[in-house]
């Protein structure tokens, strides 16, 4: 990708007022290894449950496709992936360095 050299990633750990001691002093449940995986597992469980909920009622959509099993789930997933990938592509065209307008 032809990126502007002025576009830089977020501040490196080096020049932040951070040190490891500070973070360990202030460790929370989310900092522990495996916690994030637990969150993801809960999310997956809820997602599956929401799709299975389609069995519990009869769909009466305005259009036929709305009655497909798990339509909104599939639409949401595909929409978001497409959105992010398209937006990423847009960066090549539209992203400039922070001081572009100065």
């Amino acid at each position: 990708m032809s990126m502007d050299p002025k576009i830089s990633k977020g501040t490196d750990a080096g020049d932040m007022p951070t040190n490891d001691a500070m973070i360990t002093d202030d460790e929370r449940w989310l900092d522990r290894p495996g916690s994030v995986d637990t969150v993801i597992r809960i999310l997956v469980f809820l997602s599956v449950a929401s799709v299975l909920a389609d069995f519990t009622y009869e769909k009466h959509g305005h259009w036929g496709f709305q009655d497909w099993f798990g339509f909104d789930a599939a639409y949401g997933f595909v929409a978001c992936v497409a959105l992010v990938i398209a937006a990423k592509g847009l960066r090549v065209l539209l992203m400039r360095g922070e001081d572009y307008y100065d």
Binding site: D4, I7, S8, K9, G10, I40, L43, V44, L46, S47, S50, V51, A53, D54, G70, F71, D72, A73, A74, Y75, G76, F77, A79, C80, V81, V84, I85, A87, K88, L90, R91, L94, M95, R96, G97, E98, Y100, Y101
Partner: peptide, 27 residues
């Protein structure tokens, strides 16, 4: 369904590093 699978998509994109990182930039 719509929202949970959007969240799932976000998780998927973050895990696979497909999600564009936050960059100092103007759009």
């Amino acid at each position: 369904q719509l929202l949970l699978f959007s969240a799932l998509a976000f998780t998927f994109l973050m895990k696979t590093k497909l999600y564009p990182p936050e960059l100092r930039s103007v759009v």
